[in-house]
Design a protein around this nucleic acid. Structure first.
Lengths: 238, 238
DNA sequence: CAGTGGTCTAGACCACCTC
DNA sequence: AGGTGGTCTAGACCACTGA
C-alpha cells in the first residue's frame, strides 16, 4: 500500500532538512502542489498537516505555508524514539551494556503496570547506556511474553525496537510517558557514573501496539547533567 | 465561523471525560456517525483524528475506534497550557506572587532569544507560584513590546495568556520547549523554598503566534520533587 | 461475506491577505 | 479582485477484521 500523502510529506521534509528550501520562505501554494505532485488538494493538505504537526512549517491563512527554522531543535526525545534511533543522530557513537536479561513470572508491581493475568510471563531487560566513556543512562524494560515470545542478548545489545518492528512485525503505536526527578537507588549508584549527583531524571513509559494492547513498561534513568528533553507543541484548538 | 469537526470532537470528548462512553469500548462506526451528526465521512474522520492525536481513542482498522483509558493521565504540562489553565485542574488552588514587572530595552541575551532589533523593548515579568504554602515554581517571562504594548501587575497576577488571547486577540500557535536540570541560582534560592534540593528543573520555551512570529521567551524553574511532566506520543509514521 | 477504517478525488464555498 | 489556506461534501476504491 503506497501512501501518496506520505511520499509528498517525505519529499518536502527532505527538501527542508537538506536546506534546499530555506526557513522563513514559503512553500509553493497548495494549488501549485496539486499540479506538481499530481494529487488532489486534500491529499496535499494531508501532507502539509503532517509537516505542521512536526514543526516543519506554519500554515498562514491568506499567505501560504512558511518553513520554520528547525535547527537547534535536534534532540527528539519527544515522540516515540528508541535509543538506537536517537543515537544515530548524535555526533559520537554511544555504547549499550547489557546488565541483565531474564524471563519470569510477573511480580506484583509489574503485573499491575502491564495489566497481566496470573501466571503471565515477562521479560526483564536491564541495560546501561554509555556516552563519552561514562555510564549515563540506565534502562529497565519489561516486555509481556505473550507479545514477545523470544528475546536474546544480541537483540538487546542492538535494538529491541528494530527487532520487534522488522522481525516480529509488531506495530508500535503510542506511549504514555511521565518525567520526574528522583533520588538515586542503590542500583543507580552501582551501575551509573553518578559523580556525586543527588538526583536522577526518570522517564516512565507505557507503550502500546496498534490494537491498543499494552506490551511494554520502561523506566529510563538519566544522570541529570546529561538529560535534555525537547518538544514541539501546538496550542490546543478551542 | 463554526467548525463542524470541532463540535463533533468536543461532543465525543465530553462523552468520554464524563464517563458516558467507557474505556475499552468502541465508538459508533464512522458511517453511523455520518447519520448521527449529519456530516460527511471526511468531517467525522477529521474529528476522530483529533481525538486520536490527543490520546482519547485508538483507531483500529477493520474493528473500530476504541476509547482509551485516560485516567492517571491528568497532568497535561504537555501541549501548550498556561499556569492558570493548569491550576484549574488541580485539587488545591495555587497562588501567584508577582516579584517584578518592568519594561526596558532588550539586553544582549534576551535580544538574541527573541530575535529583536536594536532599541526594541521587552517586558520582563518575574512570578513565583505557591502550592500548599510553599514557593515551588519561579517563572520568568520576556514578552516583546511590539506584540504586547501594555501590561499591568493585575494581569500578571491573574493570567497573561488569558489577557493576550481574550483582550489582545493574539493567536498563540506553537512553542518549542526544552527541559533540563540545572543548579539553583541565587535568585532560585531566595525566591523558592528549595529545602536543600541541589537541583531545579528548568523549562525554556519559545512561543510563537499564528503568523510564525516569536513573541515570548519563558524560563520556568521548578523544585524537583514537585515537578512532573506527562506526555502522550504517537510513533512517527515511516 | 459484510462491516470497519484508510486513502484519494473533484468540486464547492468561505475567510483572510495583498494589491 | 485574485490568490491563499480552511472547511465540507459525496463518492470511489482499498485493506483489514470477524463471523
Amino acid at each position: 500500500m503506497k501512501k501518496k500523502y506520505l511520499d509528498i510529506c517525505q519529499s518536502i521534509t527532505e527538501q527542508i532538512r537538506s536546506g534546499r528550501i530555506k526557513p522563513e520562505t514559503y512553500l509553493p501554494s497548495e494549488n501549485e502542489m496539486v499540479k506538481e505532485y499530481q494529487a488532489s488538494r486534500e491529499t496535499i493538505r494531508k501532507a502539509l498537516n503532517l509537516l505542521a504537526q512536526n514543526g516543519y512549517i506554519q500554515k498562514i491563512r491568506g499567505k501560504g505555508s512558511m518553513v520554520l527554522n528547525t535547527s537547534k531543535f535536534d534532540f527528539p526525545v519527544s515522540g516515540l524514539v528508541s535509543f538506537k534511533e536517537l543515537a544515530g543522530k548524535m555526533s559520537e557513537p554511544p555504547q549499550t551494556i547489557l546488565n541483565g536479561l531474564s524471563l519470569g513470572e510477573a511480580g506484583g508491581f509489574i503485573k499491575k503496570e502491564l495489566q497481566l493475568e496470573e501466571g503471565d510471563l515477562v521479560w526483564d531487560v536491564l541495560r546501561t547506556r554509555k556516552m563519552g566513556g561514562e555510564r549515563i543512562i540506565l534502562d529497565r524494560d519489561f516486555l509481556a511474553e505473550k507479545h514477545v515470545p523470544h528475546l536474546t542478548g544480541d537483540i538487546c545489545r542492538d535494538s529491541i525496537y528494530q527487532y520487534l518492528e522488522k522481525e516480529l512485525n509488531l506495530n508500535i503505536s503510542f506511549a504514555k510517558k511521565e518525567i520526574i526527578v528522583e533520588e538515586p537507588t542503590d542500583e543507580d549508584r552501582s551501575l551509573l557514573d553518578l559523580d556525586g549527583f543527588q538526583n536522577v531524571v526518570v522517564i516512565r513509559s507505557h507503550v502500546y501496539l496498534n490494537d491498543a494492547s499494552l506490551f511494554q513498561f520502561t523506566e529510563s534513568r538519566h544522570r541529570p547533567d546529561k538529560f535534555r528533553f525537547t518538544d514541539f507543541a501546538r496550542r490546543a484548538l478551542h
